[in-house]
Design a protein around this nucleic acid. Structure first.
Lengths: 205, 205
DNA sequence: GCGGTTTAGTAATGGCCATTATGAAAAAAG
DNA sequence: CTTTTTTCATAATGGCCATTACTAAACCGC
């Protein structure tokens, strides 16, 4: 029993997510959040908890709703396809919405006041989890002969992630989808292969 | 005539620079700045103007004091050496000071409140200037036959910058100098060569 | 339709923010 | 030594911040 909620919690979370995406954790004020969600402050608190809790839920939703290309990528047959799928989809996502360019995982909190340290750490862990998945996928690729045994899977994973992070910074600076695509292409050129040569171009746009 | 300044303006600027480097523009409060510089608020205002003006002066000093490896790099004989010098020195700088890892050009202001928009734009312009220099250097390299005529100098410059930005993000997340060095090495292993093959390793550590 | 319970919205609270008024202190000029 | 000019430091100002009492309204089971 009791009164029903008058707003759609999921829609409010989506709206808050976009605010965080654009302004980051500390840059987003409750004035911004209430305006974007159409929900008054106390209702946001009762539905999501405080600002940090709201951000963490937004991050989880971001992972589900926007980063589904990562599990997709990990299932592709070759390491090179995995990397290509990630890089081109990142270029895409980072430039798809003009109102919130770049990546929530980067925009969220890079530097800031000490108060935001827990959120910063959460984002570090979030990115590290993705990188670990990628490294493991590359290790499998080595076992399968898809990558040379001399390849360093942790360095390769860090490299792919570094390029996506760099593209996120550039997207936030206004770089076009095409420019980021060119960056991705360059990152993929001469990818190490099991059979020593054949550096070929990407199969993706 | 009149009273002398009791603090060293340059030292105060250096201290403020480190605060911005660590916390970014919005994350740095005047409480932080007065503590780090040992200078009271009104003295900072009279010496540097407001917070935005102080940040811009800190950025200029950062360019002079810490990014001298970029003009150095541009004078090296080959495009590959230019890129290698930039990437390895960036890996170094990003991890040299445990109290302010990463890069001021990235940490300074990526996302944030609307109020910080001018600072964000200043940093975008700052990074774009570096990227433009690099692109021009690569065009020269094409003219000199040091890069293939088919190479896209703007994409190459954007790629090198993307990797440095990504390394800055990773450094802020606590990555070691060695890990960033491995990222740089991987970035250089994709480098196109004039003579079609021979993707060789870097000459730098 | 009434009592219990949950939500909505207004408006308050205390804290930190950048910025600056104010007046004391210090140094050079006359 | 006095006057003028500049810097210093304390402390105030107004605004925005996240968070939350508090009151009114809406719904469910009875």
């Amino acid at each position: 029993m009791g009164r029903h909620r008058e707003f759609d919690v999921e829609k409010a979370l989506d709206a808050a997510l976009c605010v965080f995406w654009r302004k980051g954790y500390e840059g987003a004020s409750y004035a911004d959040l209430t305006e974007a969600t159409g929900v008054e402050r106390p209702a946001l608190y009762s539905a999501f908890g405080n600002k940090e809790a709201l951000f963490r839920q937004a991050l989880a939703r971001y992972d589900e709703q926007y980063l589904d290309y990562i599990p997709e990528a990990l299932q592709l047959p070759t390491a090179r396809q995995v990397a290509a799928h990630i890089l081109y989809n990142a270029a895409d996502l980072n430039t798809r919405y003009p109102n919130h360019t770049g990546c929530l995982g980067i925009n969220g909190a890079l530097a800031g006041s000490d108060e935001a340290e827990p959120v910063r750490q959460a984002l570090i862990d979030f990115r590290a989890a993705g990188q670990a998945q990628l490294r493991e996928r590359f290790e499998r690729a080595k076992a399968e002969g898809d990558l040379p045994k001399t390849a360093k899977s942790d360095a390769l994973a860090a490299f792919v992630m570094a390029v996506t992070h760099g593209m996120a910074v550039q997207a936030k600076a206004g770089f076009s989808r095409d420019m980021l695509g060119a960056v991705a292409e360059q990152a993929l050129s001469t990818w190490p292969t099991g059979s020593s040569t054949l550096s070929g171009k990407s199969s993706e746009p």
